[in-house]
Design a protein around this nucleic acid. Structure first.
Lengths: 151, 151
DNA sequence: AGGTTATTGATAATGATTGTCAAATAGAGC
DNA sequence: GCTCTATTTGACAATCATTATCAATAACCT
């Protein structure tokens, strides 16, 4: 059975307090900075638990760190991430959910999890970059996105 | 200036030959298995370069590995990947393409690339595991996949 | 061909994450 | 309130992918 420990509460609370995404390492550091003697392994375990029961979201940052965020809504959603400034927009995607489940089932796959994220340049970064990135933006024109960067 | 070495060609070629996503480690192992004495660090560097100039896609697998794929084929598709045996099924997803473009546009994002992959257990691996993984598979029933692994 | 300099590769270093296991403790039952 | 026991914790070791180091090599310009 699951026990309620102050450590678990502590992780849950501070994750909710952060609001956005944070790495396990950073959350541990924040807790320690706040005077808590919580252990690093416990933070990892708790975050993994929270993610497993749906109380937290997790995603892999581009440099391979796992990031977590309190998932107040309980809603499952995906992210639209600016690959320049890191701004993140949450997007719901009922159509994608059902598509993923259907495709997995059609191919005999079970316990399907999907990775669905969209990376792009947010309006602001695109504006700022347009003056200096001519060659690059020509190569990666919007129309070519599917062929080049899309996965 | 960029120099053309057989190592670079080798990585480029075998990545294209693979067709799907592969980790740097796995690609290195494949090259070595094919008789090439290429170094691991070189594979990492070359893949990072290819990704930087747009000749390769990269994505983070759920367990934190970086996966790469050649993106010159012109054909854009996604993957259904068995997280146990690695079997990969290519899946087309016209509906997801248009969804991704629409969502990005609605939020002012340009040059949008999407990461859409489904990880699961293929029928065969699920069968083999069912005898020993009862508790686990009950905990991670198909219906719970969205809450647990999806991002 | 010769010289410059980017590239390579063996290995060490890094950094995140997970495994280990004895000690602490939450919660059930008395 | 007190005991008991299974769960949880935490310090530390182990693991794994990735990156840095740096001497040796090899591409490319002239």
């Amino acid at each position: 059975m699951k026990r309620n420990t102050w450590q678990r509460e502590s992780v849950r609370d501070s994750l909710a307090g952060i609001g956005g995404f944070i790495s396990a390492q950073a959350l541990h550091a924040a807790l320690r900075a706040g005077g808590s003697p919580i252990g690093l392994a416990t933070v990892y375990r708790t975050l993994a638990d929270l993610a497993a029961i749906g109380e937290a979201d997790s995603l892999q940052s581009p440099d391979g760190e796992a990031l977590y965020r309190a998932c107040s809504s309980g809603e499952h959603h995906h992210h639209l991430i600016c690959r320049h400034c890191g701004r993140t927009v949450e997007i719901g995607a009922a159509e994608v959910e059902s598509w993923a489940q259907r495709v997995a089932a059609e191919n005999g796959f079970v316990d399907a999890a999907h990775v669905v994220d969209i990376f792009g340049w947010c309006a602001q970064c695109a504006d700022e970059a347009s003056g200096v990135e001519d060659a690059s933006s020509a190569r990666r024109a919007p129309g070519a996105a599917d062929a080049t960067g899309a996965v």
